[in-house]
Every structure is written in C-alpha cells, then in structure tokens.
C-alpha cells in the first residue's frame, strides 16, 4: 500500500514540476509548485516522518505560497517569451545533457546499492528531543533566520 501511494505522490510531484516548466502564466506556475510541495509533504510522511510532512505543509504550502501570491500580484503577467536565450556553445550543452542523463540512468538502475527500507522509522519524540537537545543551537539559529528573513519584506522608511 505504502509503495503504491509513494508511486502516486512521486509521479504527481514530478508531473507537476515538469508542467510548471512550461507554464507561461506565473499563477499557474505557482499552483503547480503548490501541488509539488503538497506531494513532497506526503512523501515525507510515507518515508516515516509525519512531523516533517506537516512542517513542509505548514511552512511551504502555507507561508511561502502566500508570499508568492503577493509577489505575483505586484507584477503584470509576463507577455514576453518565457525561455531564456542560451549562450552556451551547442556541443557543450549536448555533452552536459548527455552526462546528466547517464547519471539519471545509473540512479534509476541502481548503480549504488541502497539499504533495505526499515519498517519503523525514528518517531517524532526522538526527533523532538534531538531538536531541543543536542541540536538546540541550530534550531534557535534556524528560527531566528526565519524571523530575520521576514523582516526583509518590510518596506524601509522613505522607500530607499
């Protein structure tokens, strides 16, 4: 059951992330991103960490998406072409793409041997005690960073 759900969530996430690539309107690109973020939250829960899944939903699908909508409202919908113009010499670009596809092929066909998936993942209690135990300074730094990042949005007086 878990495997099937993982296939569904992963398939949807990849499909909508590729779909986002071709969207001309910023709104539809943002909606595609929202679907990807929600599927990633489901994948986190299926991988054995419901706490991370909920945090992903709260932080990304909640807070960041609100800011994305504010930024989209601030700008007119793009009318010009959506693709950047490439300066990379063509042979080099083709070489890079081939290298990438080879790496992907190796990942998909198990070049590295992955450990068998465990049935019981560490529970939220263990994660919580680590977050506020040995990782406490990092946790406080991350929360302070999020607070300061929010200040970046505040308009300076005089609009400078």
């Amino acid at each position: 059951m878990g495997e099937g759900l993982m296939w569904a969530a992963g398939g949807l996430a990849v499909f909508f992330s590729v779909l986002m690539l071709f969207q001309k309107s910023l709104y539809s690109a943002a909606m595609c991103l929202l679907v990807v973020m929600l599927q990633v939250a489901i994948i986190f829960s299926l991988s054995g960490s419901p706490l991370l899944g909920l945090m992903q939903m709260v932080i990304y699908a909640g807070a960041v998406m609100v800011l994305v909508v504010v930024v989209i409202m601030a700008f007119p919908n793009p009318t010009a072409s959506r693709w950047g113009n490439f300066f990379l010499p063509r042979p080099l670009a083709i070489l890079l793409l081939a290298g990438f596809l080879a790496e992907l092929f190796m990942i998909f066909h198990g070049a590295a041997n992955f450990p068998a998936s465990s049935s019981t993942a560490p529970n939220n209690l263990a994660v919580g005690s680590i977050l506020f135990g040995s990782y406490a300074p990092a946790t406080e730094a991350a929360t302070l960073l999020m607070f300061l990042a929010g200040l970046a949005l505040v308009e300076k007086k005089g609009g400078a």
Partner: peptide, 30 residues
C-alpha cells in the same frame, strides 16, 4: 534517515526545511 532509523538526520532535515523557507522569503522580497 528513516531507513537507518536515525533521528539526527530527520532533525537536520527539519532545520534545512526552515532555512530553505527563509531563503525563499528573502528571494521573494528581492
């Protein structure tokens, strides 16, 4: 982290999630 039953890895993932959200907010404000 789940397959090695390592809660340190999950704690690190949670902190990375928060830092990535902060990065998104700064990017959006720019």
């Amino acid at each position: 982290a789940s397959s090695f039953q390592d809660s340190n890895g999950l704690a690190a993932a949670l902190i990375i999630l928060c830092v990535a959200a902060a990065e998104a907010v700064v990017g959006l404000s720019l």
